[in-house]
């Protein structure tokens, strides 16, 4: 065999080895990718953070005693239960909205109503929004009276 032929033979000989190397590299990439979690869904956490802000904030719907600077998180002041106050306390953002209902009182308010309706319509769409609901036993302060009620919260997050 002349020198040129030897070189060609060696190159030809390397082709299966290169294919084998490609298979090895692709396998490693596939294995690593299939086990490493890259999707982080924090929508539930975001929703619960919003719920807590609504319940615990002195500027939210909770009863707030100015004289002792204390918030009563489980007591809802009926005078504070309105959309304007809620949206003033928590500046509306595009990707999260909520609907709050007092079941016994039959009252309903929204945080970010337009966004809520948009996101709610995209609930069952792939890549759409997610709804997180929460129910809480609350006391409603109507003047000097305390009344039992259930606060139903529906939060939708994009």
């Amino acid at each position: 065999m002349n020198k040129k032929a030897i070189i060609s033979f060696n190159v030809m000989n390397f082709i299966p080895k290169i294919i084998f190397l490609v298979v090895v590299v692709l396998s490693i990439v596939f294995i690593v990718k299939s086990f490493v979690v890259t999707d982080i869904d924090i929508r539930s956490a975001e929703a619960y953070v919003l719920i807590n802000r609504i319940i615990y904030s002195p500027y939210g719907i909770a009863y707030y005693d100015k004289s002792i600077d204390r918030v009563y998180p489980g007591i809802i002041d009926l005078a504070n239960f309105n959309t304007q106050r809620l949206e003033k306390a928590i500046v509306p953002v595009e990707h999260i909205a909520a609907k709050l209902s007092l079941v016994n009182q039959g009252k309903r308010i929204f945080y970010n109503e337009g966004t809520y309706n948009n996101l709610y319509s995209m609930l069952n769409v792939e890549g759409g929004s997610k709804e997180i609901t929460n129910e809480l036993y609350v006391l409603v302060k109507d003047g000097d009276k305390l009344k039992s009620d259930i606060l139903h919260m529906s939060v939708v997050v994009k």
Binding site: G74, L136, Y137, V138, L139, L146
Partner: peptide, 10 residues
């Protein structure tokens, strides 16, 4: 909150 409100319920 449920426990606190239980104790406060009239």
């Amino acid at each position: 909150i449920i426990l606190l409100n239980y104790l406060r319920t009239p």
